[in-house]
Design a protein around this nucleic acid. Sequence first.
DNA 1: ATCTGGACGACGGCAAACTA
DNA 2: TAGTTTGCCGTCGTCCAGAT
Length: 424
Amino acid sequence: MQGQGDRVTNLRLVDGAAGTPARTGSAPRPSTRTRSTRRRRAFGKIAKQRSGRYQASYLGENGERYLAPVTFETKGDADAWLSMRRAELEEHRWRPPDPQPAETPTLRDYSEIWLERRRTRDGQPLKPRTKDLYRILLDKQILPTLGDRHLADITADDIDDWYAMLLPAAPTRRAHAYSLLSTIMRSASTGRRPLIPDSPCKVEHPTVLHRTFEPKPATPQQIAIIVENMPDKYQALILLSAWCGLRWGEVSELRRKDLDLASMSVRVERAVVWRKGEATVGTPKSRAGVRTIALPPNLRPALKRHLAEHAMPGPDGLLFPNATKTGHLHVNTLSKTYHRARQVAGRPDLRFHDLRHSAATMAAQAGATLAELMARMGHSTAKAALVYQHVAEGRDRIIADRMALLAEPGVVQSTGIDGPRAET
DNA sequence: ATCTGGACGACGGCAAACTA
DNA sequence: TAGTTTGCCGTCGTCCAGAT
């Protein structure tokens, strides 16, 4: 049904296609040639373009002239296409082509290519997790509703309706889906050869409102209780997460060579990502994630014991291998024991990642400057680190109290803060 | 034979972090 | 700041080994 031709009113679009190869999903490619090319044409017209390609047109039942949606490489191909239209007319199968331009690909076709070719701003392919997410968003949220629509047919109203239909109960997913569709449509409307004049994604305030992030750090006492209640082989892992702020992907990729008990430091230069049951070692989340962190001396005995009893052998031996000692530890492995341990510590709300927040808060309370905190946590922007500085602002009270001591020597005041010190 | 708990994979969901 | 990219969390289900 598609590909019979377009009204002359769509001439501009057709002209735009002249000189370019036939677009996908357009006219069926004729495979046969007719013998009538030398005779005067009884049906339709074939015009040679400046590009050297051939453009076919014919009169429909309604007397209106229709152009083939693509130009042809040879005159024979154009002729064959006309023969097919002629047969349709003679057998009364002919229908006027869809008034909407049909030569833009469907959203499904376009997004498949888009996903394969997409590069981040620095020219890298998408990370596997991101590609997985986009795949799911396309398959579950976007394509079932809009996949068969041609790009040029999708209106802002369609997008509004689709957006309204998405489950508001899952705001993040909804925002992601919209954001992805918006990006794809923008790609289609820009570049060297835009397929549509403008992106139809016009939803106002589509993105989820960012909540203010409030870390609820654990105290050193709570951390100690959690550690005590973890199986022996995971205790050092909790300590490193809670005191050095390592992310899960970072701590589970640590190897013997990364840990230096002589200088009491740990080197973070790799992270592991799980995808479809497979662990992949890559770079940390950000470039600033590569760092060396000084270890609080209080961790030494536990780390030493861990190296002796649980880590895999050799400099490349994983510090925290899986049960069979054949590979990386899966995050879910810890969940049950960790949940039990945090319950005992009276902190059922403390997620594993909050251990990292605890480390940052303690570092800030111990007097780390913004730059020191960023380096320690592997933050590349100040935004995240500032949160912890804010949390530790009680330090200002201490400073003020101590300043008062300077004025009144001999008067001892409580600081009111029993905050942790990195050197304890 | 049944139960229990550890390990871990899949998946839906949210938040953190980065960048223009 | 908005938009984009990436990682983490909780839950459910399955498999398996050891205990009852």
